[in-house]
Design a binder for these strands. Structure first.
Lengths: 291, 291
DNA sequence: TAAGATGTCTGACTTAAGTCAGCTATATGA
DNA sequence: TCATATAGCTGACTTAAGTCAGACATCTTA
């Protein structure tokens, strides 16, 4: 009755009821659900026909017909892909974008209706982030991003907020942007961002300090994504990128209060070394040889 | 990009992807989704054909045909309702129950797969409860239940755990059951239980103290259901039931630490009165005239 | 008890969704 | 450059899903 699995299945029912209602309302716009799904997927940036097919799980014949229908309606235009003329790229026309905007507005309304009627919506959103991230853990992507990308800035801001909180000191997030931004992009470094269905949930950066020597910085995982092994994934990814930048040794500093981080470094091939900088908040220093 | 509505919509996508996968796996059992839905709804206790139709949102013709199909398969038997021979009641046969059990096993497996791969599953479950309850707020039902119903006991246990926590004292939940159980059922009182899609999320009881005088007890709302106005709904419901029991005045005691409760009573027609018992944890005493 | 309402069923549809074999154009690699 | 693989398209299907009008039995109420 009140066992864990029932509790969790209840979530699926609740969301499905809600989303089912949305699907039905999608029909109100007069287009069958199949075409509506295709139109929305294109609107969300899935433009390659093959990718669309996989994403929507459709047969190639059906896909083709649905696209043909949307073309006849004037919602979509397709053209061969420049690099491979067998593949086709679908794009929304202006009318298509307008239709897509209508669907988006419907979805937003339904989300807003729930959020607006609940007072502690930050708690609700945190719960939503957690569940969406756990469910989507197999679809987390780690991408290279510019330090001035707003999604990176969101993570860096959260990172500074958090260490300010932990150390009871105010770390200036340099509202004008990360002062080290320049050294955190190629060829002197790189910034990696973890995305779960578009939401930034973690980051890590590396910065070249000397010939062959790099320092790992800005390691952060969103609260909703902790416990999924994302930190380890990020570290693996940054090591790979560091090697590509020609780095052979990595260093990093951290603080004893960050126990999860300490544990990760100690079990992931890092060796504790002597203090190598004068960062007053750093207590532990690590090094790892790559390759 | 990271606005509240996108964050919330992301949840719907994540759960739909997950549940969509389940729907597809339902097809693996060789029955079209429509019949599978009907079979599952019957298995979950929706036996009245009319209720089934509303619940699944189907046309009466389609409903009838799907039932006929399941009957032909030997999964379902229908019979006229005893009280109204126009209505029909559908029941699973033994074969039907076996098929239903297969679907349940599939659903459990998929929930278990997610839960099992996440360490802090209590956090995940709490988040799931919160979201499911908020989404299902319009479908919360308040029912009369026996004080020894396991769902009531679950709430009472949680109630005692919580006040033990708040007052730093151990309140004995009387493992053998609520000692006042007898006085919390008709004709001397009643116990109300709030259910959200089957999950108990709150309770309240009333107990006759004298001719026309009742006392409200065991008022509790689950953490996941706070902020939805459920306490007020429960109070309204218990007042109605108290009137039916012939009570004209209600009393209750509470503690200053329970600020939300205090605020509710003060704004819901209750008048603060003198201490009327020797409960050492009670600091405030209220009374309300009914009718 | 007759008139109207209700709940379900059936037949005759329409539409959407999905499948499959075979076609064409393009790319790839020995 | 020729065989083979790949991506998408088309025609000819099947199946599922949904709609609608009317039939019938049963209940309700004036």
């Amino acid at each position: 009755m009140i066992d864990d699995i029932s509790r969790f299945r209840r979530l699926a029912r609740a969301v499905t009821t809600q989303t089912g209602a949305l699907d039905t309302s999608f029909l109100g716009l007069g287009r069958p659900l199949g075409s509506a799904r295709v139109l929305n997927a294109i609107g969300h940036g899935k433009e390659d026909v093959g990718e669309l097919r996989v994403y929507l799980g459709l047969d190639s014949g059906l896909m083709s017909r649905l696209l043909r229908g949307l073309e006849a309606e004037g919602m979509v235009e397709t053209a061969p892909a420049p690099k491979d003329a067998r593949r086709r790229i679908a794009k929304l026309t202006e009318a298509g974008q307008a239709a897509f905007a209508q669907y988006e507005a419907l979805s937003d309304q339904s989300a807003e209706a729930v959020l607006g009627r609940y007072k502690q919506s930050e708690a609700l959103l945190a719960a939503a982030d957690l569940i969406a991230t756990v469910l989507g853990r197999d679809r987390i992507e780690i991408i290279e991003a510019d330090p001035e990308d707003p999604r990176v800035e969101h993570c860096v801001q959260a990172y500074y907020d958090e260490i300010s909180e932990i150390f009871g000191v105010f770390f200036d997030p340099q509202v004008s942007g990360d002062p080290e931004a320049g050294s955190l992009r190629a060829p002197n470094g790189t910034f990696l961002l973890a995305l779960s269905d578009g939401l930034p949930i973690g980051c890590v950066a590396v910065k070249r300090q000397a010939e062959g020597l790099g320092e790992v910085k800005r390691m952060w995982v969103a609260p909703a994504a902790r416990g999924l092994g994302l930190a380890k994934q990020l570290m693996n990814a940054i090591e790979t990128h560091a090697q590509r930048l020609g780095l052979t040794t990595l260093q990093l500093d951290t603080n004893g209060k960050l126990t999860a981080a300490l544990h990760l470094y100690r079990t992931d091939g890092w060796v504790e070394i002597e203090r190598y900088n004068d960062n007053p908040y750093a207590e532990h220093f690590f090094e790892k040889q790559l390759g």
